[in-house]
Computed example of a mutant assay.
Amino acid sequence: MLLKTEQDEKLVFSDLGRTCFAEWHNVPAPVQKDPLDMPTRNVVVTDHEDSPVDRPAKSGRYQNAGEVVREGLRSVEREDAEGGARIEALRDAAQAGMADVKARRIQSVDSAEELYQHFGTVAAGAIESAHDRESGH
C-alpha cells in the first residue's frame, strides 16, 4: 500500500505490518547500453596469453575477461597516441636542426673530445638556466 503525506512528501510503505519511509524522488534511472548491442569478437590466445587475461578477472579486479581485454585495448590506444606524439616531437626537432644548418647556426668540431666538451658546455648552460628559473632569476 502506498500513501503520500502532504506535509513532508514521503511515501509510506506497509509490508506485513512493517512501515518504512523513503524520500520521494523524481530521478530518472541511468540509461545503460545493452551489452547485446556492443560488437563482439572471438579471439584466440595462447596458454601464455591466457594467464594475464584470466588472473585479473579471477582476482576481482575486473568482472570478466572481456573487461581485461578492453583495458588492454585502451592501453594500446594510449601507446599509439604517445608514440605519435614522440614521432611528431622528433620531426619538429629534425626540422629545427635543419633550419639551424641552413641558417649556419652550427658549430664544427674536429674530434670526439671537442664534441663531448661542447655537449658538456651545453648541458651546464641548460642546468644553470633551470636553476635560474627555479630561483626566480
Rank of each mutant, 00 (worst) to 15 (best):
D80Q: 08
A85W: 09
G66I: 02
G17R: 02
L16T: 07
P28E: 06
Q117H: 10
S108N: 13
M98K: 11
D50K: 08
S51R: 15
G83R: 06
I87F: 09
R41G: 04
A22P: 01
E71P: 00
T40C: 11
S111P: 02
I87N: 11
L3Y: 03
T46I: 12
H131C: 12
A130G: 06
E71K: 09
E23N: 08
A130T: 10
E77D: 13
N26M: 12
H131M: 14
P39G: 07
A65E: 03
G66F: 00
E82K: 08
T19V: 11
T19P: 00
L73T: 08
E113A: 12
D110H: 04
S135G: 11
S111N: 14
I106Y: 08
A96M: 10
A65D: 03
P28A: 12
G17I: 01
A103Y: 07
D8T: 00
P28M: 07
E9H: 01
R70T: 05
D15T: 05
R70E: 07
D50L: 15
L36W: 09
Q63Y: 08
L3T: 07
K58R: 13
K4Q: 12
G72V: 06
D8S: 02
R41N: 08
W24L: 05
Q107I: 11
R61C: 05
A94E: 04
R91W: 06
A123T: 13
H137P: 01
D50F: 09
V68R: 00
E23I: 05
K58Q: 12
S14I: 02
E114L: 12
G72Q: 07
S129M: 11
R91P: 00
F13S: 01
D47Y: 05
A123C: 14
S51E: 15
G125L: 04
E67V: 01
E113G: 05
L2A: 02
V44K: 04
A81T: 09
Q63M: 13
R78V: 15
G83M: 07
